[in-house]
Design a protein around this nucleic acid. Structure first.
Lengths: 238, 238
DNA sequence: CGCGATTTGTGCGTGCGTTCACAAACGCAT
DNA sequence: ATGCGTTTGTGAACGCACGCACAAATCGCG
């Protein structure tokens, strides 16, 4: 029947798309790319859910928010679904990223292939330390943070990545916002204060480690109850 | 005053601590350390909540799950609260970490100071590529992945960090689990299959970028149509 | 000693997210 | 064309989490 895309040129806007769903779409997209590479033309919700590591009902509800792009009795068209999710996530537009803080982590991020492969490109590198400035990483040269506003405007950069020490992060965030950046990915372990309209996502490795630590701790202390049926691995070498 | 643990001074066990609360405790801890360094002896829920970037009621409810360590009319004792949270998170025990995959990201993680400062120590580095093996990073030498089980047992390592390409991640996870590791932090963009009893947390930079991309996309599209009534959008950080 | 100011701890309403379960829709074989 | 097995899309129930608002508790001061 008419399950064709009604109008792909009209940009889909989903103001009420649940945040939890948005957070899973990239995972679905990754799973779909994997399935496409394996030659699958279609995939069932069960199959895709397994590949993405989620419940199939949840996946169907997530996808239903984007519209009805599945075929009952068959499944989802892999290529079509990829197109749709990429459209919803705004990945059709190539986005440029400014990376601030060229230390240990910054170097790694500058060379990280996961950006380019998903439609992002690191367009500029910045640091405040004179020792770093001028260094060449890949095709880019590290510039001084004071040039940020100028470069952001010239390159049309909309996303900033902060990989500085915590003490410098807030000032960098202010400079990014002042330069017109409206999305920030923050690797510094601190809370950023930004005006409304600017989105901040935080990645803190120490936090992740501490959450794992809690579960390790809990597992070590609850070693008394009998496990259901799955004899788990060795419980923490004392 | 719901249910106080009788062994409050001993090792606290909180099997029913909400996962959302656990995820915030490290953030509170970081904020508390900052306050302690500024010389604060006590802090109100409002003050701590601001420093941690959360709602004060939420913070109070989170802390109430750990017991009553606040004083009405005064606030929380900073040093005491640090001790309590560290005890709950199991940070009193020094935990050793094995880092697998010494590429771009692996190098950065190996030199990341955020581990040691929070009671974790990278105790061993592994890679499968012969070109990496033997390289010296800090005080450690990169070893071949085949030595993993032996080193994990000898060093008493309980946490594994995977920074390999996606295609190698599952096999590395299997090897880690086989060696007795019960917690894994996965930077590879893929779903890991592990037996129950093993905790996996995933950090995917590409996913974070795509979530930001969605919000950029949405902001760009909702700017064009006539603002219906509420142009004020909450800065849904996090 | 008592009172007011302050702040915690929490009961409660609300909204979001997840899961179950099933009707509707589809392809295919007969 | 019809019926059957398969799969989607979704209504409904459930549980968790969040935030408000307030009583209880504590301190400081007159």
């Amino acid at each position: 029947m008419s399950q064709q895309r009604t109008d792909s040129s009209a940009s889909p806007v989903f103001p009420d798309l649940p945040e939890a769903t948005v957070a899973r779409l990239p995972e679905y997209l990754r799973a779909l790319h994997g399935l496409a590479q394996e030659g699958h033309d279609t995939v069932s919700s069960e199959g895709l859910a397994t590949a993405a590591g989620v419940n199939s009902a949840k996946l169907r509800k997530d996808l239903s928010h984007l519209g009805s792009y599945g075929t009952r009795g068959v499944g989802y068209d892999v290529a079509l679904l990829i197109t749709q999710i990429e459209a919803v996530l705004g990945l059709t537009k190539h986005r440029k990223v400014a990376l601030v803080g060229i230390g240990n982590l910054g170097h790694a991020l500058a060379g990280y292939g996961g950006f380019a492969s998903r439609g992002f490109s690191v367009a500029a590198l910045f640091d405040a330390e004179r020792s770093q400035i001028g260094e060449r990483i890949g095709t880019l040269v590290v510039r001084h943070i004071d040039e940020l506003a100028e470069v952001v405007a010239a390159e049309g950069i909309s996303i900033g990545v902060i990989a500085t020490p915590a003490r410098a992060a807030q000032q960098v965030a202010d400079q990014l916002v002042g330069a017109g950046v409206t999305s920030i990915l923050n690797f510094a372990p601190c809370v950023l204060n930004v005006p409304s309209g600017v989105d901040v996502r935080k990645v803190d490795l120490a936090v992740e480690m501490q959450i794992l630590s809690f579960h390790e701790h809990r597992k070590a202390l609850t070693a008394l109850p009998v496990p259901p049926e799955q004899p788990a691995g060795e419980a923490t070498g004392s």
